[in-house]
Amino acid sequence: MIIIFIFKLIWDVFMFPENLWRVTTLAKKKATIVFVLFGMIIGAPYLKASLQTLETIAIDMQIISERIPELVIENGKLVLADQLEQSVLVKTDTANLVIYAENAPDSLTIERAIKRAPLSFLMGDSQLKVATPATDFDLSYDLLEGLTDVSLKAMMTDFGSLSALTLIPMVIVSLLVGLVDGLLQLVIMALFVNILSLLFRVRLPFAQNFKLVLVASFMPTLIMSILNIIGVYPAAQTALIAGITAYIYYKGIITHVTRL
């Protein structure tokens, strides 16, 4: 029932800005729920972008897995079914795989590939190196004893797959990003409407103005988030949200108070 009341209030304020004055009596618990919902809608485009990135990773990992030759790790060494004449280098947008041929020196091509990709897996004779453009670390084959090309391909496939273990952290991070981003936006808008109200000699506590802009900006923010999710990014959308919020605030608070 609380959620229904909140959405009805938000809709009534958006359609009829003069109802904004009702928000001044909104209980702290309900205001907190509105803020969490506000963070969720801001975080939704971030979540979509994360899912798209995961999908890209899954495709790239599939490409890499298809190029892995027959191999096994035995006695702390990489053993290939067929001796490589040259190093294997599989490049994708998100990851690289390098399997060094015996006694093959590091090539400039491999070095450049490592620097350009977010993640690289380099399989040498006795260790696996995981590298990023900023850092790298070595993993001894003693810890990977018995690993075969079949199990490695399965790991590559699972690396980019969507599961509860990947989805839940992504949702949590997106929500946290949305809450932080939303808080910054609301603080700035609350300061702005506080100055606007002072010009009309209307004085409200900052906490009240924060709560008012939270409800006033909810629908414009929701509309922009939906547009972002479907791939539409209006120019100066933050300014548009702020402008609509200021208009609703003016109609709902300043006009209401000056008429008393």
Rank of each mutant, 00 (worst) to 15 (best):
V213G: 01
Y247C: 06
P234G: 10
V180Y: 15
F200Y: 11
V215T: 07
R201W: 07
V232M: 11
L214G: 01
V180D: 12
G182I: 07
T238W: 14
P205C: 00
A235Q: 12
R203N: 10
Y233S: 11
A236M: 15
A235L: 13
L204T: 04
L198Q: 08
L198D: 07
L196C: 01
I244M: 10
A246I: 11
T245E: 04
L176R: 11
I253T: 03
M224H: 01
M219C: 09
L186P: 05
V177W: 12
L227F: 14
V215D: 02
I248W: 02
L240T: 12
I254W: 09
K251W: 04
S197P: 02
R203G: 00
I254P: 05
L199A: 05
F218G: 04
S197E: 04
L191W: 10
I248Y: 08
F192Q: 02
I254F: 07
L176A: 15
G243V: 01
G182R: 04
A246E: 03
L183T: 15
F206M: 03
L175M: 14
A246W: 03
K211L: 00
T221A: 10
L240A: 08
I223K: 03
A236R: 14
P234C: 09
P205E: 00
V232I: 15
I241V: 15
